[in-house]
Each structure stands twice: as structure tokens, then as C-alpha cells.
């Protein structure tokens, strides 16, 4: 039989091996970066180089040195310690937001797929489209306008935005599975659609969800930083990367280190998560593996 994956590129150099190496390498780099920041956040729960609740005006706006590896800010606080504690806020907001998105989105997606083509499916998917019209920033603006600013805003706003993302990815994964004969076999065995969704569909879309979860996690960190930067997220004195950048903005010409390091922290965390997501996708995606025959 013809191999459906027959590639049309003749006499090509073999890059596939390199691709695999690259894929696993991106997974490795991603994992390391993610673990560094998750570790920093965890360590900051029990220890940080300096106490960031103490101001030390005499020591303010110092460039990186042996005592303060990443320098100090305009209140004389240690930036490395601030970044470590700030990682907690970012990671916590992003995790809860992904949790909200999955908790609501996955069941909705499973349900819509089980009733494909019905009114329910249509309503769920249209509602999803509608939520996409509200970027998380607009949701945060609306919440802040009515309830005032807080870190909870960021969580809710990002979480709501995550719901349709997970609903869509679950539904599309589930729809292809519903076409498979093993689902028909389960129906012949008298199983209902709810049971089939949990027993057969969900385990087979977990890979998709893990990959999407990593991506939404990284987007959540970016979004939280943005919201905190404009004052719609974490409020002082809660340290957050976005707030640190907002504070540094007016001093950027004479204290660029205050802007550089928190930004690098965001960049590297998001990069790490994205690389991990890509690596996992390559690992899970059968299309990239060698043909089964």
C-alpha cells in the first residue's frame, strides 16, 4: 500500500534525525528553564537573599554587585529577591487561570462533541466565539471598573479567556475520536455518551490538553505581567514582575537594570514553557513519529 505520509521532496537530505534531536533538546531546555523559575518561587516561600518588605533608601538603585546580584530598586530592595517572590504571583495566577479554563472548558468541549450538530453544540461553540471577542484585558478592565483592582481580577479575566480555548481544543480532539470504531464498539456494549466521554474520549485527549495547558500557562504569565503593569493585576505590596517593570519605567534611562531583569524573568519563563509545550507536542504527535508500518 502507498504510504500516506510519502513526502514529495525528492532526494532530500535527511534532516529528520536533527529534527528529533532538536525536538527533544527544546523539551530539555524548556524543562530546565521552567524548573528554575518554579524552584525560585518555591524557595522564596522559606528563604530569599533579602527581606523585600524592608526598605533601605540608603541603598537604593544600585547596579548589580556582589552583595546584590541583580542590583536594588528605588526603595533599596534586592531585585533578585523581588523576582523570586514575584515568580510566586505569576505562577499562581497562571496556574489558577489554567485550572479555571480546564475545569470549565474540558467538560463543555466533551459535552459539545458528544452532541455534535445539536443545538447544544451550536450554543456552546457560539458562546465560545463570543468570549473570544473579549480579550482578557477587556474583561479585567470591566471587572476593575466595577469592583476595583486586585490580583483576583487577573485570575478571573485570564481564566475566563482560557475557557473557550480548552473547550475548542477538547471538542476538536473529541470529534475525531468519536469517528473511531472503538467508540462504536463501546456503544454496542451499551455505554452512554457520558460514560464514553469519560472512559474513552478524555484519556485520549489528555496529550492535547497537556500541550495546550503549557501554552496557556505561558500566555497566562504574559497576561498577568501585562495586567499588573497597567495596574489591573496584583496591587502593592504584592511583588509582581509586571509591577516591577511599571515602577522601573520612569527610571529606565539611569537604572536600566531595574527594567532588564524582571523582563528577562518573564521572557525566560515564557520561553521555557513554550519550548516545553513544543517538545511535548512533538513527542505526542504521531504525525512526526516514524510511520507505523
Amino acid at each position: 500500500m502507498a504510504d500516506p505520509r510519502t513526502n514529495i521532496r525528492p532526494k532530500a537530505v535527511d534532516w529528520r534525525l536533527w529534527r528529533q534531536v532538536f525536538a527533544s533538546r527544546s523539551l530539555a531546555i524548556g524543562l530546565v528553564l521552567t524548573l528554575i523559575f518554579a524552584g525560585a518561587a518555591l524557595i522564596s516561600l522559606v528563604w530569599a537573599p533579602y527581606d523585600i518588605t524592608q526598605m533601605n533608601i540608603a541603598n537604593k538603585i544600585k547596579p548589580p554587585s556582589g552583595a546584590h546580584w541583580l542590583g536594588t530598586d528605588h526603595f533599596g530592595r534586592d531585585i533578585l529577591s523581588m523576582i523570586m517572590v514575584g515568580a510566586r504571583t505569576s505562577i499562581a495566577v497562571a496556574i489558577v487561570a489554567v485550572g479555571i479554563g480546564m475545569a470549565a472548558g474540558v467538560p463543555l468541549g466533551l459535552w459539545a462533541a458528544a452532541r455534535k450538530g445539536s443545538l447544544l453544540d451550536e450554543v456552546i461553540m457560539r458562546a465560545n466565539d463570543l468570549v473570544f471577542a473579549f480579550p482578557s484585558l477587556l474583561i479585567a478592565i470591566m471587572i476593575t471598573a466595577t469592583f476595583g483592582p486586585s490580583a483576583i481580577n487577573a485570575i478571573i479575566a485570564i481564566g475566563i479567556f482560557n475557557i473557550p480555548v480548552f473547550a475548542r481544543i477538547t471538542r476538536s480532539g473529541a470529534l475525531t475520536l468519536w469517528q473511531r470504531d472503538f467508540i462504536l464498539a463501546a456503544r454496542v456494549a451499551g455505554k452512554g455518551s457520558a460514560r464514553i466521554s469519560v472512559e474513552h474520549i478524555l484519556p485520549n485527549v489528555t496529550n492535547l490538553l497537556i500541550v495546550q495547558g503549557t501554552i496557556q500557562f505561558s500566555l497566562g504569565i504574559l497576561a498577568e505581567a501585562g495586567l499588573s503593569y497597567v495596574g489591573l493585576g496584583a496591587q502593592p505590596p504584592t511583588p509582581s514582575w509586571g509591577r516591577m517593570l511599571a515602577d522601573s519605567q520612569t527610571m529606565i534611562s539611569f537604572a536600566p537594570h531595574m527594567a532588564l531583569f524582571p523582563g528577562m524573568a518573564i521572557l525566560l519563563t515564557v520561553l521555557g514553557l513554550n519550548l516545553m509545550g513544543d517538545g511535548l507536542r512533538d513527542l505526542f504527535d504521531p504525525k512526526l513519529r516514524r510511520g507505523r508500518t
Partner: peptide
């Protein structure tokens, strides 16, 4: 046809 997959 010389339309072989990569790595042939």
C-alpha cells in the same frame, strides 16, 4: 517518478 520520501 523520483518522488521518494525524505531520507531515501
Amino acid at each position: 517518478m523520483q518522488l521518494l520520501p525524505n531520507g531515501s
